[in-house]
Design a protein around this nucleic acid. Structure first.
Lengths: 247, 247
DNA sequence: GCACAACAGAGAGCACTGCTCTTGCTTTGG
DNA sequence: CCAAAGCAAGAGCAGTGCTCTCTGTTGTGC
């Protein structure tokens, strides 16, 4: 036990030359893979090409990633983390401001991240590429943006309460379940709307990143800000200036 | 001119044995490709495997589709059409009923179509697979569901008017533009919300089809019906029983 | 300090892919 | 009836993921 702890500690802090080289090569592989991903898309990402570009033979690459799909999942996790970081950074900049503004700013950060890296975005919010389901190792990284959005609503709720909708009876048990799992301190009705709005946000970003808005929406930034504001309104966050949109 | 017309007419009505064989083989190829698509996903769809299964040699297949990507775009168009047909069929069944109900029923049809054929759904609403942008030949087929939704709102509007939101000033020019292109007979504010809701609908379906709701939403059908109802509410369609959801 | 094990890279090779080109054969239209 | 066009087949090229074997190298326990 203690011995194992010691080993782990030593490996993570003062790693030997070999271990360091390993992490460096691993990082180099992921970097080059990310470059190819950005250039050509996930479909054309090739292990051999990555190896070639790195000046090593393709079989050597399998010492670091047991398969192409494993490389891809590593990139997926990194992408989730990068997106989460971008969202959290945007959130940090508006910490003191109104919940609605925080919400819109985080949404815009997600959108901008996706527009800047369409292929990485496609990796995580497009169709799942490798097999069928993304391995469960991606779950924690994937949850970051969602948790951030929940946090914003939670703060607003603890502050002065959020407007909430009345749920139809058939949805109430499910709503209770979801609230218990995700945010026990929030009213079930809010959690239900939140989950829906979460998906809808990525619907908006998807359509823009994947070009479905081409020749439909022109001034997409303004449009998105408006839509994100409506989503905020929908989860009960109200703009201080009494609503940018109203009946 | 006349001669050409005659030729075209003859080709489309009483096509020769060769032409018939060609359309038959083309259909068989697409069928087999669709089968493999459903079984393994777009990434593993292989021209050679399709040819093998059909008992022909791979090079022969290039007489019918000039490349793998062309085959895929053919499948994409078919998928759009199939989805559009499903949506229109669902719409036809509730023609006389309230706009809100029509809306929800069409949304549910989209969801069910996607859940039944996740890979075909991924082809059209997931990340664009072939190169970068889907060729413009897919546009008309792609618009069917959107036009159907617009139609529902238009009918409701002509009937008794729909509730509409006040737009912020910065969005008004863009709103006018969008309304002019898509539905000149609808108020710009409605069109803006409609486009947003259109994207949000597919955000909901995306998350469900691609498994983002796994371990988050359990009773997904009820949840979706509720969310679709809220979207209807959002575009100004109101339930006859004074709203399934209210403040 | 040294032997042994774990590791890293190289190369060959397998089965597969998309795609091209050439070669015969069949159908079709003038 | 015959040239032209359409079709299938086969060989072949360049590329892919992945495995296996074979060398060196590096780190570790005795």
């Amino acid at each position: 036990m203690l011995c194992l702890c010691g080993t782990l500690l030593r490996m993570s802090t003062a790693q030997g030359a070999r271990a360091r080289a390993r992490t460096e090569v691993t990082a180099a592989i992921k970097d080059e893979a990310r470059r190819q991903l950005a250039a050509e898309g996930a479909a054309k990402l090739s292990l051999r090409a990555v190896a070639r570009e790195l000046g090593m033979v393709s079989s050597a690459l399998y010492r670091y990633f047991p398969s192409r799909d494993e490389l891809l999942t590593a990139l997926i996790i990194d992408a989730y983390d990068s997106l989460g970081e971008a969202a959290e950074a945007a959130y940090a900049k508006v910490r003191g401001e109104s919940p609605a503004r925080q919400w819109v700013v985080v949404c815009e950060a997600v959108r901008e991240w996706g527009l800047a890296r369409p292929h990485e975005y496609a990796l995580i919010y497009g169709s799942p590429v490798p097999g069928y389901t993304a391995p469960s190792t991606t779950v924690p990284a994937a949850a970051r943006v969602g948790l951030l959005l929940i946090g914003i609503v939670r703060d607003a709720h603890q502050d002065k309460g959020v407007a909430q909708w009345k749920l139809p009876a058939e949805l109430r048990p499910e709503a209770r379940r979801m609230a218990e799992d995700l945010a026990p301190d929030l009213p079930p009705a809010v959690v239900v709307v939140l989950i829906g709005v979460w998906a809808q946000l990525f619907g908006l970003v998807n359509f823009e990143v994947f070009g479905q808005f081409n020749r439909v929406v022109e001034d997409r930034e303004t449009f998105f800000r408006h839509a994100a504001g409506q989503l905020a309104h929908h989860v009960g966050l109200v703009y201080p200036r009494s609503g940018a949109t109203e009946r």
